[in-house]
């Protein structure tokens, strides 16, 4: 133990001074250097994290928006197809309806015409009958005039005949 290994001997002065120096160093660094640095780094980390989160959110929103647009587009397309189909249906319906009503109308017109024709025919026939009757009477008159004085019974018989012809 004769050899003095000086660095491993506790020295009172060095002990006190290292305590003071390190203590002061610790306190000053905590207050003016490491504390503020650590806090700003923490804050910066948080800011970066927030910014990243925001970017991620924005991206998600964008993709959501995109999906929404896509969806809307598809929906619109479907809507259009639906509308077109509906329109087609309506068109067909209208055409069918029109056709139907035209058919009805035409048949009505035709039947009206037929009825008119019938009545006209009847009227015409009546007219003809009357004319024919008159003519027959005329003829008969002329015929009869020649025989007028023959018999009153004969005239009555002619009139009954005319009645038979024209009911």
């Amino acid at each position: 133990m004769t050899l003095l290994f000086a660095p491993f001997q506790p020295a009172p002065g060095l002990a006190i001074w290292s305590l003071i120096i390190f203590g002061l160093f610790w306190w000053l660094m905590a207050k003016y250097a490491f504390g503020p640095i650590a806090r700003s780094l923490e804050k910066r980390d948080q800011d970066i994290q927030n910014a990243l989160d925001e970017a991620k959110n924005a991206r998600e929103e964008m993709s959501n928006l995109h999906a929404e647009n896509e969806r809307l587009l598809i929906e619109a397309r479907e809507e259009r197809a639906k509308i077109l189909k509906e329109a087609k249906d309506v068109k067909n319906e209208i055409i069918a309806e029109a056709r139907e009503s035209a058919k009805v109308e035409s048949s009505r017109i035709i039947s009206n015409a037929l009825a008119e024709i019938e009545s006209q025919k009847k009227a015409a026939l009546l007219e003809v009958k009357n004319q024919v009757g008159a003519m027959a009477i005329d003829i008969a008159e002329k015929v009869i005039r020649k025989q007028l004085e023959q018999d009153k019974e004969q005239t009555a018989y002619v009139e009954s005949l005319i009645k038979e012809i024209n009911p």
Binding site: L3, Q9, A11, L14, W17, I21
Partner: peptide
């Protein structure tokens, strides 16, 4: 030399204490 180890590491009890600003300080 002024040490506090009471002879444990080769230092001895001394009649004085050295609190100087040494090279290490």
């Amino acid at each position: 030399r002024s040490t506090l180890d009471n002879g444990l590491f080769g230092g001895k009890i001394t009649s004085f204490y050295d609190f100087s600003i040494t090279k290490n300080v």
